[in-house]
Amino acid sequence: MITGLFETHLKVADLERSMHFYGEVLDLELAHRDETRPIAFYWLGTRGDAMLGLWLEPPKRIQRQHFAFRSTVQDVLRAPAWLRERGLTPRNFLNDGTDDPMVFAWMPALALYFTDPDGHSLELIAMLEEQPRPELGVVSREKWESLS
């Protein structure tokens, strides 16, 4: 019955600012902007695969959320520099001041985080081909590679 996630929505305080962020900074393709109400939709990945909706709301009604963008291992590894080029601060899962992607060994997947203008936590994540090793928890990429 369920084969994936098609659409998710975020409440944003400034629709124009968020449209600039998701469209210009993150290079997402605008799918539709509804001029009759304050909302814009962006395609995630290939057109028709998944969508992100941005809904204008008063700042006091915005609750910070988290979601992850599917990516490739190569792109997650390139992401720290790519994000910094766009004026964004990449961070790892531990938020310890470093920006080297970390591995969630139970999946396993490589992940890196950053924040949008409203403080929503965004993640780039890529599944790894190795077998899951949940006993390792969350580890650095270097540790994962040394144990694989």
Rank of each mutant, 00 (worst) to 15 (best):
M1E: 11
M1N: 08
M1L: 09
I2K: 12
T3F: 02
T3K: 12
T3W: 00
T3L: 01
G4N: 05
G4S: 11
F6G: 08
T8A: 14
T8Y: 11
L10Y: 10
L10N: 10
L10T: 12
V12L: 05
A13L: 02
L15F: 06
L15A: 05
L15C: 08
R17M: 06
S18Q: 12
M19H: 02
M19D: 02
H20I: 08
F21C: 12
F21Q: 07
F21D: 06
F21R: 04
Y22F: 15
E24Q: 15
L26M: 11
L26F: 09
L26I: 09
D27Q: 14
L28Y: 13
E29N: 08
L30T: 14
H32P: 00
H32I: 08
D34K: 07
R37P: 00
P38D: 12
P38G: 04
A40N: 10
F41M: 14
Y42Q: 07
G45T: 04
T46N: 10
R47A: 13
D49T: 13
D49L: 02
A50M: 05
L52V: 06
L52P: 01
L52D: 10
G53T: 12
G53D: 09
W55T: 14
L56N: 02
E57W: 05
P58W: 01
P59S: 10
K60D: 15
R61A: 11
I62Q: 08
I62Y: 06
Q63L: 13
Q63Y: 02
Q63E: 14
R64T: 15
R64N: 13
R64H: 15
Q65N: 13
H66E: 14
F67H: 13
F67I: 06
F67A: 08
F67L: 11
F67R: 06
R70F: 07
S71I: 03
T72G: 02
V73D: 00
V73K: 10
V76Y: 02
A81W: 00
A81N: 01
A81T: 10
L83D: 01
R84M: 02
R86S: 09
L88M: 10
T89S: 13
P90N: 05
N92H: 11
F93I: 14
L94R: 15
L94Y: 15
N95K: 15
N95P: 00
N95I: 07
D96F: 12
D96R: 13
T98S: 14
T98L: 11
D100F: 04
P101R: 05
V103N: 02
V103K: 01
W106M: 05
P108A: 07
P108E: 07
A111Y: 01
A111L: 09
A111V: 15
L112W: 01
L112H: 03
F114E: 04
T115P: 00
D116N: 11
D118Q: 13
D118S: 12
H120K: 12
L122T: 02
E123S: 04
L124F: 12
I125K: 06
I125M: 09
I125Y: 03
E129P: 02
E130A: 15
Q131L: 13
Q131C: 07
Q131K: 15
Q131H: 13
R133F: 05
R133G: 01
P134V: 09
G137V: 06
S140C: 03
R141N: 12
W144V: 07
E145M: 10
E145I: 04
S146R: 08
S146D: 03
L147Q: 12
S148L: 11
